[in-house]
Design a protein around this nucleic acid. Sequence first.
DNA 1: TATTGTTATACTCTATAACTATA
DNA 2: TATAGTTATAGAGTATAACAATA
Lengths: 173, 173
Amino acid sequence: MPNDNSTPDPASDKMLQNERDIRARLGDQPFDFDSLHVISNIYRAAAAVRRRAEREVLSGYGLSWGGFTILWVLWVWGEMETAQLANECDLAKGTLTGMVSTLEQQGLVQRERMQTDRRRVTVDLTTEGLSMIEEVFPIFNKFESDMSADLSTDEKRIAAEYLRRIITRHDED
Amino acid sequence: MPNDNSTPDPASDKMLQNERDIRARLGDQPFDFDSLHVISNIYRAAAAVRRRAEREVLSGYGLSWGGFTILWVLWVWGEMETAQLANECDLAKGTLTGMVSTLEQQGLVQRERMQTDRRRVTVDLTTEGLSMIEEVFPIFNKFESDMSADLSTDEKRIAAEYLRRIITRHDED
DNA sequence: TATTGTTATACTCTATAACTATA
DNA sequence: TATAGTTATAGAGTATAACAATA
């Protein structure tokens, strides 16, 4: 879908200089600038979130982003098989093996081979892992509140819904 | 800000199973679920975007995500000093050095030492680099349209604006 | 033979710090 | 001395493919 030049952008007065520059440079070409801006802002926002989270929250607990995600997923969904855990954490299967090993050495999770099918392995929080996520998550959640503090509750819900459509679209392909 | 339980979530019927599970497991605790969902959906959407872009668009041209970003920035803003380019591409300064060297070997960009201050280096597209970005960007932009095809033009603009507030918040801190 | 988790390799990217050459 | 870019190191993460054990 090419850019809809007939409709003025209601947010143009707040548009980042960045976005104005792009229109100034390429606005005469038939690109889809609305899609461009939403996709690139998703990426920039995610990079900012992760960078700040690692620096301000996770590094103090010796956790990587992925390590934190694993603890969080096990906390919410409970004991889980490796393949399912990798999928839920959005991590490659080889990456997960290494990160679970690290968390295991830190005493935060434990592996267990399944009796019904001894190829499979389940991962679960240890008591220490439970304490860790119970301590870290409230701080992480405050950080999430802070990052999104310039949005109202309704705006957060709308943003979450729009993003969900992009995520879901990806999942369908 | 704790979760506002008094306001029903209008999108709850479309809520991803993921998000329902979180509320089912932790909904009795005073967490800020609206912030949680918007932040985690930003991250998931960004991961999906990057993964699909690398697989479906960039790998066919031998470009990494960062390499593509450098070409794009130089295309829009023109010749640029290294420090400014790193900032604009959201890349660490050491990372940029290596990636510019790779692009230089591919013949897509060229470095030039400034006469006024011989410590500084500018980077610019070569003729081949210009051809490359002119060929790849339209395809990348179609990919962006596809990723966001489940949003209307107005919804894309709203989403871009909300994300801008999160990015800007980050920049202010 | 197919599948699960693991391991290995090569690559992208980050953060930090040391280094060089200029200024 | 300070600054700009480079280089080096350690780590997080990806993709791909090979591998062992089990089914």
